[in-house]
Amino acid sequence: MQNTHLIPIPSLCTHYQVEMSFFTGLNEYGLIEFISVEKTYCIHQDKIADVEKMIRLHQDLQLNYEGIDAVFNLLEKIDDLKSELITAQNKLKRFEDG
């Protein structure tokens, strides 16, 4: 993994105006994964969209870590079900109109 794709947690704290403890909590609950680079905790840039969603859920809806985890799991299930539905609809087309 290239270090250029890693974002230091302190930078995220400044950027999003969120306490370090929030990110530590997300890491402890397994919602994000800290990567240690020269004694600084970082996350991969691909996880930024998820992190932003977690911040919004926490700030807008006062969700705690368990709540955020539950929402992410359910959204993942919805995505899986949507994919299954599309696959099933595409399969069904084989049998439509003879």
Partner: peptide
């Protein structure tokens, strides 16, 4: 504002 001056995607 709920988002204040926070930078969001």
């Amino acid at each position: 504002n709920r988002s204040g001056n926070t930078k969001f995607r």
